[in-house]
Amino acid sequence: MLINILLLLGGFIALIYGANALVDAASSLAARYGVPSIVIGLTIVAFGTSAPELVVNVFAATTGSTDMVLGNVLGSNIFNVLGILGISALIYPLTVKSNTTWIEIPLSLLAAICVLVVASDTMLDGTASNFISRSDGIILLLFFLVFLVYNLMVAKSGGADEEITTKDYSTGKAVLFIILGLAGLVVGGRLIVTSAVSIAEVIGLSERVIGLTVVSIGTSLPELATSIIAVRKKNVDIAIGNVVGSNIFNIFLILGISGSIVPLGVNPDSFFDIIINILTGLLLFIFVFTGRGRKVERWEGAVFVIGYVAYVTYLII
Rank of each mutant, 00 (worst) to 15 (best):
S108P: 07
T63Q: 14
T127S: 14
L109K: 00
S27Y: 00
R32V: 06
V115E: 06
G18P: 11
I138P: 07
V56K: 09
S133M: 08
A19N: 03
L42G: 14
A46L: 02
L15K: 05
Y17C: 11
Y92D: 12
S76H: 10
S108A: 14
A31M: 10
V45K: 02
A89H: 05
S50C: 06
I113H: 02
T101G: 08
L140K: 01
A19T: 09
A51P: 05
A89P: 03
T49M: 09
T122A: 04
A26W: 04
S133F: 08
T63M: 12
S98T: 13
P106H: 05
Y17D: 02
R32A: 14
T100K: 14
N151D: 07
T101K: 05
T122W: 08
L15E: 00
A30R: 05
V69I: 12
I91W: 02
G75N: 09
S88W: 02
G126V: 06
F59T: 11
N80C: 08
G18W: 07
D136E: 14
A26C: 12
A21T: 11
V115P: 11
Y92H: 15
A46V: 08
L141C: 03
S120Y: 05
T43H: 04
I40M: 01
G48S: 04
A21G: 12
Y17R: 12
L141R: 06
I132H: 12
A26P: 02
A111N: 01
S50K: 08
F144C: 04
S135K: 14
Y150K: 08
S120F: 05
I84S: 06
K97I: 09
L42K: 04
